[in-house]
Design a protein around this nucleic acid. Structure first.
Length: 495
RNA sequence: GGCGACGUAGCCAAGUGGCAAGGCAGGGGUCUGCAAAACCCUUAUUCGGCGGUUCGAAUCCGCCCGUCGCCUCCA
């Protein structure tokens, strides 16, 4: 199998993934600052990392994946003061919102979520060491990192200190040694949450918590550090500077992965622009796989424009895959035991050596080709749009086999191979989480639908088309879709 | 002003030197009581524009046009 290759922001190239320790992969993905509801922009890095972790695990890596919440920050404090509640209340509220959205979306690869405020001692120790070694300096209760002490400063974002100074558009704090020095520790103003420190009561600066937590759990030289590309500068640049100066080792992280922004009306979606689409609203309107499909339909390093039309298109595209998968599963359920043990759907190795029909061989081969194409796409910098194309090709092959003349297109063996490919490949992308095209197995609503479907079948048998159509239309109005097949009527809930 | 990314059919989107994947939408056909789903055929002589390199470029180089992002909190 071809090796995994990833685009590394640090080198600006796609390069082979060679982990620090063979067979093991460590990941850290920057999570949100929790001061407002999670929006679709936050979903992209979380989902890309989720799929990356799934793929690494499928490739056989032992993965340790950490993500974080920045739960102390100026905006959290502002919000808490505005609402008259504690900063912790604000953070907890939005952490809960984030986690609930991740749960619904099947984003479940993170081994451990960590919080800045749970690592204050580590952060303080790190700052102390940086001060002792002359990389940082206290100033009126703050502590700043001296960027001129890091000769490599700017290597991630590809800019030099000179350029930054020249292009600086911010009014500089005159007290700092250099305009680009950034805060490691911020002194508390009266009434603000604070932790005791050698420099007086205060709180961590924005970047230090990620360095402290990354080093705490994954150590220096971790494999993959990911996040949105708006974090390249200053957040990740500063993480690198403070971490490498602290440990004396480089690289702090071997591969830096950055996803492009989610846009809306060709403009970045962000809280400051006030154009966010909250996930909590979106997940009520679209099944998880559709939302995953929407994100994964564009390569992670290209901007993704959000629109209702794009979401509807993703819904239809996903339905095509789900329909094909369900058709294969249904055919397998209806298939004769075929000499294999118990021959039920999903029965392992029912390898009865029977001469496969021509079409069946084609389907089995299509399943193999889908696996190969999918793997090749994923290995080439997580090319999920191309990986999806492999699934669409499989869907066409499966559908064709199922309508082949004489029904000779699909042996149980071939069907099992196709279903396994659908499940495994689609599973890497999380396309079968939550809602499926298959009717649920229980629930009073389902049973009532089944009663109506049976009544309609009787009406059809009696050639009472007006009654049959009325039942179908009425069911459609409550979200039930009917399909009359030669074998009988199939129904499902509208995705 | 500095740094960077991108510009492929009606729309979305792969493809980074050898005759332009896939999806959605559209058109024609098959199947169906009708519909849905599905299948078959069809929809870019052309890849923002202009030059250049090459036997050959969407793919490499230069310039131009356009869009977006970062440089300040941001996934």
């Amino acid at each position: 199998m071809a090796e995994l290759r990833l685009y590394n922001t640090l080198t600006r190239r796609v390069e082979p993934f060679v982990p620090r320790t063979p067979g093991r992969a460590t990941m850290y993905t920057c999570g949100p600052t929790v001061y407002d509801y999670t929006h679709i922009g936050h979903l992209r890095p979380a989902l890309v990392s989720d799929v990356l972790a799934r793929w690494l695990r499928r490739l056989g890596y032992s993965v340790l994946y950490i993500s974080n919440f920045t739960d102390i920050d100026d905006r959290i404090i502002e919000r808490a003061q505005r609402e008259g509640v504690g900063y912790r209340d604000v953070a907890e509220r939005y952490i809960a919102d984030y986690l609930e959205n991740m749960r619904v979306l099947g984003i479940d690869q993170v081994d451990r979520y960590v919080r800045a405020t749970d690592h204050i001692p580590q952060i303080i120790r790190m700052i102390e060491a940086l001060v002792e070694r002359g990389f940082a300096y206290p100033l009126d209760g703050d502590v700043y990192f001296d960027v001129t002490r890091d000769p490599d400063y700017g290597k991630l974002s590809g800019r030099s200190l000179d350029q930054m100074m020249a292009g600086a558009r911010v009014k500089v704090d005159e007290r700092k040694r250099n305009p680009m020095d950034f805060a490691l520790w911020k002194a508390a103003k009266p009434g603000e949450p604070a932790w005791p420190s050698p420099w007086g009561p205060g709180r961590p600066g924005w970047h230090i918590e990620c360095s402290a937590m990354t080093l705490e759990y994954l150590g220096s030289g971790l494999d993959i550090h990911a996040g949105g590309d708006d974090l390249i500068f200053p957040h990740h640049e500063n993480e690198i500077a403070q971490s490498e100066c602290f440990t004396g080792e480089a690289p702090f992280a071997r591969y830096w992965l950055h996803n492009a922004m989610v846009q809306i009306n060709e403009e970045k979606m962000s809280k400051s622009l006030g154009n966010i689409v909250a996930l909590r609203d979106l997940v009520r309107r679209y099944p998880a796989p559709v939302l995953r499909m929407f994100i994964l339909s564009t390569h992670y390093r290209k901007p993704l424009n959000y629109s209702e039309e794009a979401l509807e298109e993703a819904r239809r595209a996903w339905e095509r895959l789900a329909n094909a998968r369900e058709a294969v599963a249904a055919a397998l359920r209806a298939a004769p035991p075929a000499g294999g043990p118990q021959g039920a759907a999903g029965a392992p190795d029912g390898a009865a050596p029977q001469p496969a029909a021509q079409g069946a061989e084609e389907l089995a081969r299509a399943a193999e080709e889908a696996r190969a194409a999918f793997a090749a796409a994923m290995n080439e910098d997580l090319n999920t749009p191309l990986a999806l194309a492999a699934l669409f090709d499989l869907a066409r092959a499966a559908n064709s086999a199922l309508v082949a003349p004489g029904a000779r297109g699909a042996s149980p063996e071939a069907l099992r191979a196709a279903l396994a490919a659908f499940d495994e490949l689609g599973g890497v992308l999380g396309l079968w989480t939550g809602a499926t095209a298959a009717p649920a197995r229980d629930g009073i609503a389902d049973r009532l639908v089944e009663i109506l479907v049976r009544l309609r079948s009787e009406a059809r048998a009696a050639r009472d088309w007006s009654l049959a159509d009325r039942i179908r239309d009425d069911l459609a109005s409550v979200g039930v879709v009917l399909e009359d097949l030669p074998q009988g009527t199939r129904w499902k809930w509208q995705a």
